[in-house]
Structure formats: C-alpha cells, structure tokens
Simulated assay, not measured.
Amino acid sequence: MRVIVTGGGGYIGSVAVERLIAAGHAVTVLDNFARGHRASVHPSAKIVECDLRDGAATSKAVQGAEADAVMHFAALTLVAESVRVPGAYFETNTGGGLHLLEAARAAGITRFVFSSTASVYGEPESLPIREDSPKRPINPYGQSKWMTEQMLSTYADRYDINHAIFRYFNVAGATELRGEDHDPETHLIPVALKTLLDEQGQFTIFGADFDTEDGTAVRDYVHVIDLVDAHIAAIEQLDQPLGAMNLGTDSGFSVQQIVDAVERVTGQSLPITHGPRREGDPAALIADSSKARETLGWSPEISTLDQMIGSAWDWFQANPRGYVD
C-alpha cells in the first residue's frame, strides 16, 4: 500500500514510517520540519517538505503521492503553548487538517487514520475513560483536535472515507534508531532520563497529595511501537469505517512508580524535588482500550515500564544530542 505520513519527522510519525516500511508499504512523508527532524525519516521514504497550512501546496503534495491511505500525525502538541497562542493551534491542527482532508478527498483517497488525543475528554467524570465519555477539552490543543475529529467524521460520511481516530494518553519508548527529541521536552520519562544524562538539575514531582495509592498522579502509558502497530493494523483493515478508539494499557503508572523504574533501569539515583500540583491536573487518567482490542485484534505487547524506559534510555545514550539535521 502507498501511504502518506504527515509529521513523519516527528517522534511518533518517524516510528510509523519505520514500521510501515518494515511491513512492506511505500511511504511518502509530508512535513515542514519546523519541529520534526529530517534525520529521523527512514531513508527509503520519499520526503516532500510541505506545510499543511498551505492548502495549494498540500493539494499538490497529496496528488503527487498517488497514495492509497493517509496517516495524519502532523500537529502542534504543547498544551501550555496552546493556551498562550491558541490561534497557532487552530491554524495548524484544525486548518491544516481541513486542507489535508480536502486534498485527500480530491485525490480519491478512502483510507484515513488520524492521530488525536485524550485531551479531547478534558477532566473525566469516571475511569477508565471510554470513547463515548463526554468531550470537554479544557485547552486549545484538545479543542483543535476535537474539531478535527468532527471534521473528519463529516468528511467520512459525505465522501465515503473509511477512517480511524486514535486517542492517545501517554506514549513512551523508542526503537533502536528513533526516539524522542523535542525542544522543549515536556514528557515525563524523557525529562527524567535527560536529567540523568545531563547530570544537572532536578526532576520535579508536581503534587504528592493526590488521591492515589502513593499520592502522585497516575497516567496510562503505551510503548510507541505498540501505538504505531495499532495504526498499521487499522490502515490495513480500513475497508470499512472504524471510528474512534482509545490506545492505552487499561491500567496506569504513578509518577513515583516511574521514578522508581528509571532508577532501577538506569542504575542511577534521580535527584528529586517536589512542587505543587499543576492547575487542572487530574489524579488519574486511564484508558479503556477494549474497542481497539476487539476491533483490530490489537494489544500492547511491550508496554511495560522497564521496556519503555529501557528502550528510551538506550536511545538517549546513543544519541545524547538528539538528531543531527
């Protein structure tokens, strides 16, 4: 199958390209490389430098790819930044998504997989979070993704585009050649590992008084390989609409459990400091991913803390400065 991967220079997108090519698919990457890395793209993929905010350029790139399917990862993803500059998030995530949908429709592409987020749910009323839980995003990032979901559903109904929407909770880990290289880095596990790698600063635990077993916040983590494999399973099964699915492990790990695992895997002591809870930070976010399991026959095979942290640690040690573009 010929697959367009938007954001193929990003963390998850680059792993998707790697796994798609390993599975025998031909890949065209669309990325403006504003935050992604050209060096992270598999050498067998065709690269088209394209900004989805430019509708004409997006249409030309999609038509030229002669693709059977789209995997749409390209997005701005920093919650705090979305609060400061909401317009950039609606322009890139929602407006860019509309341009991509229009281009896919015009090119006759009927398979479309969208990378969404658990942020569409906002603060959940109950756990685990199901796909039919209320959608009340509390920041522009989540709002922009929810709006794109709604657009995709409308286009899918009107133009017979078979689609899958994946709502992520927390993603971690690396392959041998591809890992996380963000600036700034905001994800918990790489922040902890970089604290050890840089041998400076401290790792802050925000809140130790949550209503959880050890008082620290609990989140549902999935290995990036497991996550990407769900996307590949979906794109190969999109002879009918699949709808929205959560991706997680149906359980969670606390911040303290992650600290303990980081120290266990690396054999180093992580310098810790404690800070107050961050505003709007719920005690726990856990996915009900039974729909993905039942629909796709998918299950997270390597999403243990030791495997996620161990693979990320290996990648950071091999690439202490990240990608060299």
Rank of each mutant, 00 (worst) to 15 (best):
Val15Ser: 02
Phe33Ser: 04
Trp298Ser: 12
Arg53Met: 13
His274Asp: 03
Gly173Phe: 05
Gly10Ile: 00
Glu199Asp: 15
Ile272Arg: 11
Glu294Gly: 00
Ser40Met: 02
His274Gln: 12
Val113Ala: 14
Pro43Ile: 01
Ser254Leu: 10
Gly10Trp: 05
Gly215Cys: 09
Asp68Thr: 06
Met1Cys: 02
Val5Thr: 00
Asn93Trp: 08
Leu197Phe: 04
Val191Trp: 00
Arg111Gly: 07
Gln143Cys: 15
Val27Trp: 01
Ala174Gln: 06
Ile129Pro: 03
Tyr141Phe: 04
Ile161Lys: 05
Asp211Ser: 14
Met71Asn: 04
Thr212Lys: 13
Ala318Val: 05
Leu177Ile: 08
Thr175Asp: 13
Asp229Glu: 15
Ala57Ile: 09
Gly243Asn: 07
Ser44Trp: 03
Arg321His: 13
His37Arg: 11
His182Asn: 11
Ala45Cys: 10
Pro276Gly: 10
Ala45Trp: 08
Leu196Ala: 09
Leu188Glu: 08
Arg264His: 14
His274Trp: 11
Val262Trp: 06
Tyr89Leu: 07
Asp157Ser: 15
Ala292Val: 13
Gln202Val: 14
Phe169Lys: 08
Arg178Leu: 08
Thr195Phe: 07
Pro190Gly: 07
Trp313Phe: 14
Val27Glu: 06
Thr204Ala: 13
Leu76Arg: 08
Val17Cys: 11
Ser144Asp: 13
Glu149Lys: 09
Lys60Trp: 04
Asn32Cys: 11
Leu227His: 08
Ala103Tyr: 10
Gln150Leu: 15
Leu305Cys: 14
Met147Pro: 00
Ile302Thr: 15
Glu102Gln: 15
Leu52Met: 15
Ser82His: 05
Val62His: 06
Asn93Met: 12
Met245Leu: 15
Arg130Thr: 14
Val262Asn: 03
Tyr89Gln: 03
Phe206His: 15
Tyr155His: 09
Val324Asp: 09
Leu196Tyr: 08
Trp313Ala: 06
Val17Gly: 03
Arg167Gly: 09
Thr204Ser: 12
Ala39Asn: 00
Arg84Ala: 14
Ser40Gln: 04
Asn170Ser: 13
Gln240Gly: 09
Arg158Phe: 10
Ile12His: 01
Ala103Ile: 12
Gly55Lys: 09
Thr58Trp: 14
Ser289Phe: 10
Ala287Leu: 10
Tyr121Lys: 01
Asp51Ser: 14
Phe33Cys: 00
Tyr168Val: 04
Asn139Phe: 02
Trp313Thr: 09
Thr117Ala: 05
Ala292Tyr: 13
Ala56Phe: 07
Ala103Arg: 06
Ser254Met: 06
Ser299Pro: 07
Phe33Lys: 03
Gln256Lys: 15
Glu236Leu: 03
Pro276Ala: 10
Val15Ala: 08
Ala230Asn: 00
Ala67Gln: 11
Tyr221Gln: 06
Val17Lys: 05
Ala26Asp: 12
Ala88Tyr: 01
Ala230Val: 05
Ala16Cys: 12
Val120Arg: 01
Ser59Ala: 15
Thr94Arg: 10
Ile235His: 00
Gly10Thr: 03
Thr273Pro: 02
Arg264Pro: 00
Gly267Lys: 06
Val324Gly: 01
His223Ala: 03
Ala118Phe: 09
Ile189Pro: 07
Asp68Phe: 10
Arg264Trp: 07
Glu66Ser: 12
Ile302Glu: 14
Asp226Tyr: 00
Asp239Cys: 02
Asp183Asn: 04
Tyr121Asp: 05
Gly173Trp: 08
Gly7His: 02
Gly142Ile: 04
Ala69Gln: 07
Gly179Trp: 12
